[in-house]
Design a protein around this nucleic acid. Structure first.
Lengths: 97, 97
DNA sequence: CCTTATGATAAGCTATGCCTTATGAACACG
DNA sequence: CGTGTTCATAAGGCATAGCTTATCATAAGG
C-alpha cells in the first residue's frame, strides 16, 4: 500500500490542523503553536513527523523557521487516493449486479 | 474534523487490506486470516475496530461470521475527503497568485 | 451426545505515540 | 559581548495499539 507513511502522519488531529493552517499560508513554529494550542516542543515534534513524511518543508528566516506545505506531494496523495477509492467503490458496485 | 475515527481506523495496513478484500466480496473471518496473513484473534480485533467505526458489517451464517463493507459509509467518507482536499489544494493555489 | 470448526474475547506483554520538562544551539539586537 | 527570542531535541513518563496465548461459546454433523 503506497503512501502508508503519509496517511499515518495525517491521522493525528494536531497534524491535520497544521496542514490546514499551512495551506492558508506559510508560518513560523511560534505562529503555529499560537493558532493551534500546543506547547512549542510538541509542535516541533509534530512538524518533524510531517517533514519526514515529505508533507511540509522548512526555510530558516533569522531565528525563525518558516514551514510550508509541499504542494506537489499533497497533489500526489490526492491523486492516489482518488484513484484508489474509485477502484474500491467500483468493485463494490460490481458486487451488487 | 469530521471522520477522525474512521480515518484513524484506516491508517493501519492490516485494516486497509481488510477493506480492500471486502470490497471484492464478503468474506468470513477465516478467509480473511488466510488472504491477509495474520492470526485469528488479531483479525477479530481489527474487524472489531472497523465495525465500531461503522466501516464494515457482520452477518452470521452457521458457525461463520460473514463480513462486508458498509458501502454508504465508504461513499460518505469519499465525498468528505474529496471536498476537504479540494478546499486544501484550492487554498494552496491561491497562495501563489 | 461428542466432536470439530469457527470466531469472540480476556489477560498479559511489548512497542509506539504523544506529552512534559529541561537544555542547548543559532540568530538578532543593544 | 551579553541578552532575549526562536526552535530542535533529549529524557522521562503514561496511555494506547497491537500482538500472543488461552479460553469459551456456538453451530454443524456424525
Amino acid at each position: 500500500m503506497p503512501y502508508e507513511h503519509e496517511l499515518k502522519s495525517l491521522s493525528n488531529p494536531i497534524r491535520q490542523s497544521v496542514i490546514n493552517e499551512l495551506a492558508q499560508r506559510p508560518m513560523s513554529v511560534r505562529e503555529l503553536t499560537v493558532k493551534i494550542d500546543v506547547s512549542q516542543p510538541v509542535m516541533s515534534q509534530h512538524l518533524k513527523v510531517l517533514k519526514e513524511a515529505g508533507l511540509i518543508e522548512v526555510r530558516p528566516e533569522g531565528t525563525r523557521n518558516i514551514y510550508c506545505v509541499n504542494k506537489e506531494k499533497l497533489e500526489e496523495i490526492r491523486a492516489f487516493w482518488t484513484a484508489h477509492w474509485s477502484n474500491l467503490l467500483a468493485s463494490l458496485n460490481e458486487q451488487k449486479e
